[in-house]
């Protein structure tokens, strides 16, 4: 059964149709929100808000424009932007890492590396954080991420490139062994 039909049934109160949509998409939406926010509470709130729209039938969803997954990512993004209204306004820093500088993650244990990167990802401006989360963590293709974010594929590529540089810079600035 296609997702538009599942949405229609959900809006009519069909619990099994809702269960199918939820099983398909809630883990990805939750992971996205968790990786974007670093907070389980916030991720749960985002999931609840996004799927409440599903309960209501997602009237704005048009299968001709894109898949439901992209639409749900869009809802999650909007919710995150409302939760952190200042994030999108964070100025983008200009920096350059000298090629002879050491790797800021060098010598860290696996756990230390993961925690350092998590903190650094959380500190990225929203536009850069989401491409890191979608492409770097969710392993989405550039095209799929572009569809989810509503931007061109080239924009995703360039943002990701800059986001990686920013991550290295922040890791160094945060005192990770340089």
């Amino acid at each position: 059964m296609d997702e538009a039909e599942l949405l229609r049934r959900t809006a009519r109160g069909d619990e099994s149709a809702f269960g199918e949509i939820y099983a398909r998409h809630s883990p990805a939406v939750y992971r996205y929100a968790l990786r974007m926010s670093g907070s389980r509470e916030m991720a749960e709130e985002v999931v609840q808000d996004v799927f409440m729209q599903v309960v209501k039938g997602c009237r704005g969803f048009d299968p001709a424009i894109g898949p439901l997954a992209s639409y749900l990512y869009g809802l999650a993004r909007n919710r995150m932007a409302r939760l952190w209204p200042d994030q999108s306004e964070t100025p983008i820093e200009e920096f350059d890492l000298a090629s002879d500088e050491p790797d800021p993650l060098e010598g860290l244990s696996r756990e230390q590396q993961v925690e350092s990167v998590r903190v650094a990802v959380s500190s990225l401006p929203l536009a850069y954080r989401e491409v890191v989360v979608l492409c770097g963590l969710e392993e989405m293709s550039y095209a799929a991420a572009a569809e989810a974010l509503g931007v061109e594929t080239g924009t995703v590529r360039s943002r990701l490139h800059r986001a990686r540089k920013m991550l290295l810079e922040r890791l160094k600035r945060n005192g990770v062994r340089v």
């Binding site: 993961v114 990167v117 998590r118 770097g136 963590l137 990686r164 991550l167």
Partner: peptide
């Protein structure tokens, strides 16, 4: 960095 991101 990519390795660390994959671990995350």
């Amino acid at each position: 960095l990519e390795t660390a991101l994959r671990r995350l």
